[in-house]
Design a protein around this nucleic acid. Structure first.
Length: 899
DNA sequence: TATCCGACATGGA
DNA sequence: TCCATGTCGGATA
């Protein structure tokens, strides 16, 4: 059942109250309580209490209808129950004005206005087998609010087809403000909802007029004498929130009710402005509705950005300043001058969290000041005017401003709670810094938030990620606008533009920046393209290594992220920190753009087409680009082989990474140009070829050109060429392009000439066996792990980055023979032990359910490692870091030699 | 022509 | 719905 259904049903019961029937109707809302149980309770057959007005349903509820002092009645009932040997989950009393209920398991008690029962439906969810704590974790008030809000939004859109989006959005923002204000003490309690309820007609026809009058009045500082009484109770709001002219909105009975329900059923005081904002933003943009909230940054992740960027430092300074009035005041002065900008602020959650954290620190400081000098006056330090943002969607801009007001008010309440005598008024609203609506990649950030060399300014956020092949024309133009001068910029992720602009804003100043980003900009070919130019002026001061994106949205975005903090190179002696999983912190001197400790951050491996190491050519396997019509499963292949005589001439096994690792194969049609005459009239073949022609015709470029030769692979690597070579003695080596990072070694191997290596794997045709041994070695694994690209965190093997750049020392014939023998041994053990490579290599590095690698195989690999290690260095390596350092040094020598 | 990538894709528990 | 682990074709050089 949807959350809102519980509320709606209970609301119906409360509004059409039948006191005698109430408890039965209420129980029936909770579907796990059987109808028959309720019927029996009504008849009294299973009512364990014989007192009139009392209902005791075994293990579930002890209910009493009372009159007079409910609290006294409740206390009496509790003590009465405690004397019996019974254990009802809930105890509830009500006089239908007030209601008190206790959950005897959690000992939680609610004492509420009877009319607020619908809002508290989740308190009783244990009846349905759902514990309240679990429910709240999965269905926060924010989600509930967003769900109701989406309904209202859709209804208003249907009733107002011609209205401008901006006008509608503005109305909704103001509505949200009013609902929030009446629940949190900015306005008089429930005044907005009650006004609408009592002052407008049920069909909604005059609601627009009243709303317009109200909004205008909220923006009027000097209250006219003739203000009608119903308006006079509303205060002056300012903050420009109600300044713009209200756009007329058509209301219906339905939309009016939805507004009233939003007021009555949602506890706006429980709503987090940071999360709500992201939900609202998603509601308002149709295309994003499907991934509601997918991309909002969770509070823990925001903390990972702002803590190391500036908050840790402020807290540290606070600790040092404790007991010293001057130092404390200096810290406040410093905080007052700080400025913050999120150049992709969305609905502003980074700004909100930052604002709240600073206000809390401010309170702590005043508490300390109070201890030193108890006549300390509270002077507001942190102001909304210190917060800036850029956002492309105008609704989100409004949500950001609104959310900042809400955050401000929440902190004012917290201040009052903590120190009753320190007061800060929410109204009139304070002015927020520039939250600019526009394209962050086209705007001059320094014009929005101008700063001097020594100003303390921080930029942060979670800008959009988009790989090179997913960018649309506009985004590509934006990339060119920002990164046009950067070599190879077209291969960079969209977020690279933010990192580049961050550099331009912060370089040679004290300003710093940190973003949450896809980890791919710190892997593979993007490392050189992006970081070589940025590191000319900047340095990485902290980094969170790869972790999986997660927030509370129903469906999470599928991406692995890192967090990178950056300052100007001019800032010396910064202690840099690398945070890895489990929040293990390592303090280091230099952080490389691969986000690991390094001695030289310019040791970056560049994608290279030519081999730098004289190894035989590696190429990608063959790619059919056939829409799947050249391929068939093992099973289908065997059927075909039986059905058509001689077809085995043109059927080959087809093996990619998945097939190779998991020990199976598919079949592919593989027809040489000369043989096509023989086969084009075969029914099975011709049907498939026709489909391929159709498929390729819809494409463009090379693929389309091959539409009339459908049997041909679009790219064959060097396979055909190899097949035509006579007197071959080498092996066809297969290397999976993508494979699990949970294995110690990437399984590689050899296949015969009757097997097509698919483009999901790399291939070295007609190669010596020692080469396979070299590639399977620890040395090569370390290289792959550190300089190769990744698919999230999977290993991604590529020729340009990994194979061609791999530094190889002089190998004597004797050593080659030794390697050959050891890799031969490994291949034998694989055969002897049996099972798939996935089973043999296991997943020993998995965090949750590690599966061991076959011990015999592991031993054989270690022997191979020793021999290969020895080719690089005469003594043992301490660890993989030492291997990597040696390889990187060899690499840089190799590159320098080439000039 | 040959990649290197994917706010992913997909199959199995 | 989570968890483990690798397809396939596009845009680019």
């Amino acid at each position: 059942m949807a959350i809102t259904e519980y509320e709606d049903k209970i609301k119906d019961i409360v509004e059409n109250l039948d006191k005698e029937e109430f408890i039965f109707e209420f129980l029936s809302v909770y579907s796990k309580i059987a109808k028959s149980t309720i019927t029996k309770l009504r008849k009294g057959t299973n009512n364990l209490s014989k007192v009139p007005g009392e209902y005791h349903l075994k293990n579930k509820l002890y209910f009493k209808q009372v009159s007079g002092d409910t609290l006294q009645a409740f206390t009496d009932l509790v003590s009465k129950i405690s004397q019996q040997n019974v254990n009802p989950r809930y105890i509830m009393v009500t006089d239908f004005k007030n209601l008190i209920a206790r959950d005897t398991k959690t000992q939680e008690t609610i004492d509420i206005d009877f009319k607020k029962l619908p809002r508290n439906f989740e308190f009783f969810l244990a009846w349905n087998g759902i514990e309240k704590a679990d429910f709240e974790r999965e269905n926060p008030a924010d989600l509930k609010a967003a769900e109701r809000f989406a309904k209202l939004y859709d209804t208003l859109l249907k009733d107002n087809e011609r209205i401008s989006r901006h006008g509608l959005n503005l109305f909704l923002i103001r509505l949200l403000f009013c609902l929030f204000a009446e629940d949190t003490g900015v306005f008089e309690k429930d005044i907005f909802t009650n006004t609408i309820k009592s002052m407008t007609k049920e069909d909604g026809s005059d609601l627009n007029c009243r709303i317009q009058e109200l909004f205008e009045f909220l923006d009027t500082k000097i209250r006219p004498e003739d203000t009608p009484a119903w308006l006079r109770k509303f205060p002056y709001v300012n903050g420009q929130l109600f300044t713009e002219q209200h756009t007329n909105v058509v209301f219906s009975k339905k939309s009016r009710n939805l507004i009233i329900e939003a007021g009555e059923l949602i506890g706006w005081d429980k709503v987090n402005p940071d999360i709500l904002g992201s939900m609202l933003q998603a509601v308002a943009s149709e295309d994003k509705r499907s991934h509601l909230g997918m991309h909002y940054t969770s509070v823990p992740n925001i903390m990972k950005v702002i803590n190391p960027l500036f908050l840790d430092d402020l807290h540290e300074e606070f600790e040092k300043a404790k007991g010293n009035e001057t130092k404390l005041n200096n810290l406040l002065e410093r905080m007052r001058k700080m400025k913050f900008m999120d150049p992709a602020c969305g609905s502003g959650n980074f700004l909100i969290i930052t604002y709240k954290e600073l206000r809390r620190l401010e309170m702590d400081i005043f508490e300390e000041l109070g201890k030193i000098n108890n006549s300390t006056m509270y002077v507001p330090t942190i102001d909304l005017g210190q917060f800036y943002g850029i956002e492309i969607e105008d609704f989100a801009v409004d949500v950001t401003r609104l959310s900042l007001y809400i955050a401000d008010h929440q902190m004012n309440l917290e201040l009052k709670r903590r120190y009753g005598d320190y007061l800060r008024e929410t109204l009139p609203l304070h002015k927020v810094g520039d939250i600019r609506c526009g394209n962050a990649l086209r705007l001059n950030w320094n014009e929005i938030l101008p700063h001097e060399k020594d100003d303390e300014v921080y930029l942060f956020g979670n800008p959009p990620y988009l790989g090179a092949s997913g960018q649309n024309q506009d985004q590509k133009k934006d990339m060119e606008f920002v990164l046009g001068k950067v070599k190879g910029y077209k291969k960079l992720d969209f977020i690279a533009a933010w990192f580049y602009l961050g550099m331009e804003y912060c370089k040679e100043t004290k300003a710093r920046y940190a973003f949450v980003t896809t980890n791919s900009i710190c892997q593979g070919e993007q490392v050189n393209l992006l970081w070589t130019p940025i590191l000319k002026f900047m340095q990485i001061i902290f980094a969170y290594q790869s972790f999986k994106w997660a927030n509370n949205a129903k469906r999470n975005a599928g991406v692995t992220v890192v967090i990178i903090g950056i300052s100007s190179r001019n800032e010396k002696n910064i202690e840099k920190r690398i945070y890895s999983i489990n929040n293990y912190i390592k303090k280091v001197k230099i952080i490389s753009p691969y986000l690991i400790e390094t001695e030289n951050e310019s040791l970056i491996v560049e994608n290279t087409k030519k081999t730098l190491n004289k190894l035989p050519l590696m190429s990608k396997g063959s790619s059919p680009t056939d829409g799947g019509y050249l391929l068939m499963s093992d099973e289908e292949g065997k059927t075909v082989l039986e059905k058509y005589d001689g077809i085995n001439d043109i059927l080959k096994k087809y093996v990619g990474s998945k097939e190779f690792i998991n020990g199976y194969y598919r079949y592919t049609i593989w027809i040489a140009d000369d043989d096509i005459k023989t086969w084009k009239n075969n029914k099975f073949i011709s049907e498939r070829l026709k489909k391929i022609t159709e498929y390729r015709d819809k494409k463009k470029g090379t693929v389309k050109k091959l539409a009339d030769k459908p049997w041909k692979y679009v790219s064959q690597g060097r396979f055909s060429e190899t097949l035509s070579k006579k007197n071959r003695t080498g092996y066809n080596i297969i290397v999976p392009r993508v494979s699990s990072e949970n294995r110690i070694y990437v399984p590689m191997g050899t296949v015969d000439d009757n097997t097509v290596i698919s483009d999901s794997a790399m291939a070295i045709y007609d190669a010596p066996l020692w080469l396979l041994g070299l590639l399977e070695s620890r040395m090569h694994m370390v290289w792959l792990e550190n300089v190769g690209g990744k698919l999230e965190t999977r290993y991604r093997y590529s020729a340009g980055l990994v194979y061609n750049t791999f530094p190889v020392p002089e190998l004597s014939t004797r050593r080659k023979n030794e390697i050959e023998e050891l890799i031969g041994n490994i291949l034998d053990i694989r055969e002897e032990e049996g099972g798939t490579l996935a089973e043999l290599y296991g997943s020993p590095l998995a965090a949750k359910n590690p599966k061991p690698m076959n011990p015999r195989l592991l031993e054989a690999h270690k022997e191979l490692d020793k021999v290969v290690d020895r080719a690089y260095k005469s003594t043992d390596f301490k660890d993989d870091n030492e291997r990597l350092a040696l390889l990187l040094n060899m690499y840089s020598e190799m590159v320098n030699k080439k000039g």
